[in-house]
Measured scan of single mutants.
Amino acid sequence: TEEYEYTDEQQAREAAREWREKGYTVTIEEHNGRWRVKTG
């Protein structure tokens, strides 16, 4: 599992979409105004 943090929701969603296209399972969670994208 890798985790990436973004301050911008749009960036987080874009990144998540790219990971999904590569076949990863992706979770996005908002935490204190930051967006965490977890792949695994």
Rank of each mutant, 00 (worst) to 15 (best):
E5Q: 07
T39Y: 10
W35N: 00
R34T: 07
R20T: 11
E18R: 13
E2I: 14
E21Y: 03
H31N: 10
E29P: 00
E14Q: 12
R17W: 05
N32D: 12
N32R: 04
Y4F: 13
K38A: 07
E18N: 10
T39S: 06
V26M: 02
E30V: 10
T25K: 10
G23T: 01
T27M: 08
R17L: 10
E14P: 00
Y24N: 03
E9G: 04
W19N: 03
E18A: 12
E9A: 07
E2V: 14
A12S: 02
V37Y: 01
Y4R: 08
E29M: 09
Y24R: 05
V26P: 04
G33D: 04
E14V: 10
E30Q: 09
Q11S: 14
E14A: 12
A15Q: 07
G40Y: 12
W19L: 15
Q11W: 05
H31V: 15
T39M: 14
Y24L: 09
E5L: 11
E9R: 05
H31Y: 11
R17V: 07
E30C: 05
E18H: 14
W35Q: 01
A16Q: 04
A12K: 00
Q10Y: 11
R36E: 04
R17Y: 05
Q11R: 09
V37K: 00
T39R: 14
E5G: 05
T25L: 12
A16L: 07
V26E: 01
K22Y: 04
T25N: 12
Q10T: 12
T39D: 03
W35I: 03
G23I: 01
R20W: 13
E30F: 15
E3R: 07
K38I: 15
T25A: 09
A16P: 00
E30D: 06
Y6H: 03
Y4H: 09
G40T: 15
E30M: 12
K38E: 05
A16S: 04
R36N: 06
E29Q: 08
I28T: 03
R20H: 11
T7K: 10
E18Y: 14
Y24S: 03
E14G: 06
R17T: 08
V26N: 01
E18W: 08
G40R: 14
E5M: 11
Q11D: 11
Y24E: 04
E14S: 10
A16E: 06
T39H: 09
R34F: 10
G33S: 03
W19T: 02
N32H: 06
Y4W: 12
R20K: 10
I28R: 00
E2L: 14
Y6V: 02
R13M: 13
R17Q: 13
Y6W: 05
E29W: 09
I28M: 07
T7I: 12
T27N: 06
Q11Y: 05
R20M: 14
R36L: 15
A12W: 01
E14W: 02
D8W: 04
K22M: 09
K38M: 08
E30P: 07
E14K: 13
R13N: 10
A12F: 01
Q11E: 14
E21R: 05
T25G: 06
A12C: 05
K22H: 06
R20F: 12
E21P: 00
E30Y: 15
E2Y: 13
E3G: 11
D8C: 06
W35K: 01
G23K: 02
